[in-house]
Design a protein around this nucleic acid. Sequence first.
DNA 1: CCGGGGTACGTAATCGTTTGCGTGGACGTC
DNA 2: GACGTCCACGCAAACGATTACGTACCCCGG
Lengths: 345, 345
Amino acid sequence: MTARLIEIARIARVSVATVSRALNGRPGVGEHTRRRIQALATQMRYHPHANARALVTGQIPFLGLVVPDITNPFFPSLARGAEEEAFRRGYSLLLLNTNWAPERLRQAFDLLTSRRVGGLLLAHSIRLSDLPGQDPEVLRQTMVMAGVEAPSGTGIRAVTVDDRAGGAMVARHLLEQGYRRLGFIGGPRQDPSCRLRHEGFREVLSRAGRSRMGQVSFGEWSVESGYRQVKALLARREWPDALFAANDLLALGAAEAMREMGLSPGPAMGLVGYDDIESVRWTAVPISSVAQPESDVGREAVRRLIAMIAGETPEPDVRLLPRLSVRASSRRFPDPCPAPQEDPQ
Amino acid sequence: MTARLIEIARIARVSVATVSRALNGRPGVGEHTRRRIQALATQMRYHPHANARALVTGQIPFLGLVVPDITNPFFPSLARGAEEEAFRRGYSLLLLNTNWAPERLRQAFDLLTSRRVGGLLLAHSIRLSDLPGQDPEVLRQTMVMAGVEAPSGTGIRAVTVDDRAGGAMVARHLLEQGYRRLGFIGGPRQDPSCRLRHEGFREVLSRAGRSRMGQVSFGEWSVESGYRQVKALLARREWPDALFAANDLLALGAAEAMREMGLSPGPAMGLVGYDDIESVRWTAVPISSVAQPESDVGREAVRRLIAMIAGETPEPDVRLLPRLSVRASSRRFPDPCPAPQEDPQ
DNA sequence: CCGGGGTACGTAATCGTTTGCGTGGACGTC
DNA sequence: GACGTCCACGCAAACGATTACGTACCCCGG
């Protein structure tokens, strides 16, 4: 048990009000007694009771981070950035792993209404139907989307990554490397990320001449799907000479399919993935991939959320830029000036 | 703003005490008024104010999970298991990422003294010197180690994974596959995990005949170190015909070194790693590895922590068993009866 | 000598619950 | 008809802080 305010007050022969003022640096306390009280407090190992303080001030020093699956490597980095920023500002971060269960998503909002958290960071794609009977005005003031678009029309703040720009980067890179016909394999056709990555990719290609666009195919976000899509693609007459896989799982499956056809990613057929997960560095031919600034997403989202809770108007929404990690799977020419070791361990 | 007890009370024309009793299912309320109040509560969207309740009951519905780096794939799985179990029991899980800074570790304990959390899950190797001036008795009642040994002599509860058994499994597997001289490459010599994995490995070998033990070497937990250790090993006269890398980063480096020497993991030279991170599935030759039951560690640790907080005596410490994922890097003979697809995506 | 203003502190209300204790009425028993 | 029991409910004190307001005192100017 740590000491209470009242115990310090009794020993110092003053009222609790004075002790509170002294320790919080508020005016209205003599310099002498202030020192005396502070000394006493550290000596008695006083720590303010966070709950009691929260009850009266109305400030809740907790933020909730809602993720579908913390095991997915995108989220730990996001969590790391968010946690760091939150702690710096005196907040603690709650982890909520919904495991994709709508039920768990509801519980996350309950945390808001039961005042366990002061705000919510949603790194979880949601539909409007997932917000049943929540006051939209409240949501707008206590929620920030992190890494996903806000449901349209809700006016909820969001910090996202520019998927369209990512897709465009890939297209430009592949063209620069001299690839001629660029194919695309994706996840679910209606998934926003998938759609935007595809659009960015396509736009660059159409500016470079329509003939550059190879086959396009969609499926799921899985290794298996990547494998199947590539197998199907390579069964046709005309092959692309490079592939953009809209996520790294797809890319891993694609690489495997290519290998089985006696084709290895690289000069013969370029391959670029998306997300830059660890695994793509360790395939037989390391796979190029678009890296997302997950930590920054977390950090920026927290900054906005805290500002909103404090009643300030947060900075406007941002769309952070991804970065392309070029590896052997999409290098047609040996690097002219060998860059300083891209993947140092 | 959600409704308060007092507002419900006014409308129902009863006292707050009655409302509280009605909603919490406590006796002392007539069946009729109880229904009336419950109906009113749901209609008015009442949610109890967790903080206020916590203040009077003294129960704090938060647990802290302290990890050095959530980005390390061991911890998300642990966090997942812990979060799931905690939520099931009505607790929320705080994420504390120390980033290895002792300063941040101190802050974690402050959360305990300032009553922000009711207990701490430490998935973070610590020394006694990291617990400065903490009352050891308090720690024993509010902390559980998860995945790491407790500092000896502290009597702190711990849920760990049996590293010695893991090492032994590897040795037995390699011998079964017909490998003759087994080498070992490790992380820091004084690291407990490294030491135990080595001991388990060594014990099995010495029972199988001293001659089975090849070279042993230590370094750091990194790809780079694995690479260097293997290069050094293969510079000697007598080669082992299989290697146990005490963690997967080392194994990845080892595989790379072997490849550079024109040697690929498999029948020619066996290789087994430890931790079973995603990346080892995607190397040119997929690498066998010892998988740890991280989720179970988290879950079991939470169960014990909650029991302790509730004043019950928790179940005794456990040492969970790891599981070996056999892949091509350590298969000398083709699988006689092809098991049902080990790594389905 | 009186009054005004500033300083240093205490008193008490407040945040939203839970809970021990008191009380009035209905009901049953002798 | 008096008395004891129970039940359903209200009253008020907690929990541990913050903070508006009141008050005693000192100092200084007119």
